[in-house]
Amino acid sequence: MLEISALNKAYQSPGRRVEAIRSITLGVGAGELVCVVGPSGCGKTTLLRCVAGLLPASGGEVRLDGVPVTGPPPRMAVVFQEYGRSLFPWMTVRQNVELPLKEKRVPAARRRELVTGSLEAVGLADAADAHPWQLSGGMQQRVAIARAVAYEPQVLLMDEPFAAVDAQTRADLEDLILRLWRDLEVTTLFVTHDIDEAVYLGQRVIVLSSSPTEVMEDLKIDLPPGRDQLTTRSLPRFGELRGHVYRQIQRARGER
């Protein structure tokens, strides 16, 4: 579904070239949920922006369904970390979710259905007519998720979506993502700096080195599929995996 091969990204300035991403190759199969973790400052966001077609790569390529990505592909949605800035403050929650559908020329009746459905799915049916800034941080991020879901994407990209919400809200949102992913079978690439979150959510976890970034490990998470905050996180296997990823990241930081 999503193929990233030998992706390279360097920032060019006169007389100097800073390599942010050396070479990243990874694939995400249809319906898979893959998490990307790495030490802070390792170019996770750069990677995601290249995959989304928001940033041109310096080398290598990204393919979606075999088609090279050169700009934002039509069937891809992104949830950004900065929920406060990714929602239009001059629109209501409903208008925010509806805008991309209008641009896609989805007929009005179907649009209404999608908006209502997705707001219900994230538990915000009552807040449809509120403005984003009237909601809490976690609720705002739910709106962004609802907007992505209503768009019916083939691929969902998430850029540290829960980095700025409190721990309690974060656990709720993680479970929301797992549920939506299971229900909608949408291919998901989830970028995070939180090792626990990556192991808890992912079917696979990609560990990145620090900048200039390469893939250090592509780890399969062999935890049972029906995950839940309490039981999954207390499994001995969860601890092993988390410890393993943690050591990898420590190594990545030490090496550089």
Binding site: R49, L54, V78, P100
Partner: peptide, 15 residues
Amino acid sequence: LDEVLADTCRMYGVR
């Protein structure tokens, strides 16, 4: 203009 909003527009084909 907010860059994140501008990116959001690009992603969702608002142009």
